[in-house]
Nucleic acid binder design. Structure first.
Lengths: 207, 207
DNA sequence: CAAAAGTAAGTAAACGTTTGTTTACTTTTA
DNA sequence: TAAAAGTAAACAAACGTTTACTTACTTTTG
């Protein structure tokens, strides 16, 4: 039995992401992808049932999977709040700024009904997605350091600014100078931390 | 000379937005749009040069134009910081939650290279887009109430959470109960305000 | 002050391409 | 030689856009 050529599988994934990030999701076609990867269209259909299957698997397994791993590196839920937040923000910044195709697909995940649906299903089904962050926040809610809000609301308050900053980082690649760097990211992170933490509680702990 | 049928022009715009928000940008075709609007494909090409022209004009004139107006209602740059922020947040929340198609297209604007380019050009060219907010922030930077950061960074810190909350609002439409309401939006707005404002300065002003 | 002339709006049908996917066949290796 | 991997070529359907024509209204003219 002829064995699979793993290089071709990898080429399909990486070239698909490249096309999406450079030309947009609406400009990715199976034939264009096959041509760019120097294979026959049929070869894509050995690994993936159809285009939807390819996109969903690419999004969930390839992008979200590695994204999660990268963000949680050197992070653990028992960390202090400020320390943990800074770790998560820096991990997000460094991973995404070096993986533009992933960032592009994540952005598409927020608007495209197809990927949006896939994301929600994954998020609800396994419930384990970003579970350490969930636990981290719960801990600090319990001590009263941060307010008890729904998890989705915590996410909007604590992590949407860093994702927006990454978008700005990519926008500024086309401009004369880059304004988004690690120092600025940390400054912004501190502002977000200051907003959500209960100062009185913090001072009581010090006493 | 036969006059234009303005109803048909309006139908093209509103039905295009409807298709985009329900089925995604990648599922909008000129023939599908014509059929849904009960007109001939040729009629679209009387008003718009091609598909790209349609999308860009729809995005900039129809969506961004009315979005800007809605957000700046009852707002003026001389307002106090907290008061102004709350006005902007509530306007954003109320407008977007009642205009899902606009929200969808704005989200696409962040990922699709085509719309992204159109947005940047518009933003740079006229420089007047959201100018009152620009002035508002500048004023409060001058008094030292908020830190002096690039405008794009201010936007990420101050407005990305409310946009994320609107996305959550729409996600929760499919779930048993809605958790995003005006009260929660104001709570979050206060958290963001607390984060960015210089407390010491604030207290000095009081003395 | 009607009817003819002129003109842009609008239509039905089709253009050549490209789409996602499949069929029929060849290659490669256990 | 069995069997899956892979290819070249083709499929119907849908794509963006155009052609050839009709409709509906304004303006000009006898």
């Amino acid at each position: 039995m002829r064995p699979k050529n793993l290089e071709k599988e990898e080429a399909i994934r990486s070239i698909a992401l490249k096309i999406i990030s450079e030309e947009g999701l609406e400009n990715l076609s199976m034939q264009k992808l096959a041509k760019a990867a120097n294979i026959s269209p049929r070869t894509i259909y050995i690994k993936y049932e159809n285009k939807e299957d390819l996109l969903v698997k690419l999004f969930i397994e390839e992008v979200l999977g590695t994204y999660e791993k990268a963000i949680l590196e050197n992070f653990n839920p028992e960390m202090g709040f400020a320390e943990g937040m800074k770790r998560l923000w820096l991990n997000t910044f460094h991973y995404l700024k070096n993986n533009k195709p992933s960032f592009s697909l994540i952005q598409y995940g927020k608007s495209s009904p197809l990927l949006n649906k896939a994301f929600q299903e994954k998020n609800i089904q396994q419930g384990e997605f970003f579970a350490p962050i969930h636990r981290f926040l719960k801990t600090h809610v319990k001590t009263g350091l941060i307010p008890d809000l729904p998890h989705d609301v915590h996410r909007a308050l604590l992590f949407s600014p860093i994702q927006d900053l990454v978008a700005e980082y990519f926008d500024h690649l086309d401009r004369p100078q880059q304004i988004i760097n690690e120092e600025l990211v940390l400054t912004c992170c501190e502002i977000v931390i200051k907003g959500i933490t209960n100062q009185k509680h913090h001072e009581q702990l010090k006493k």
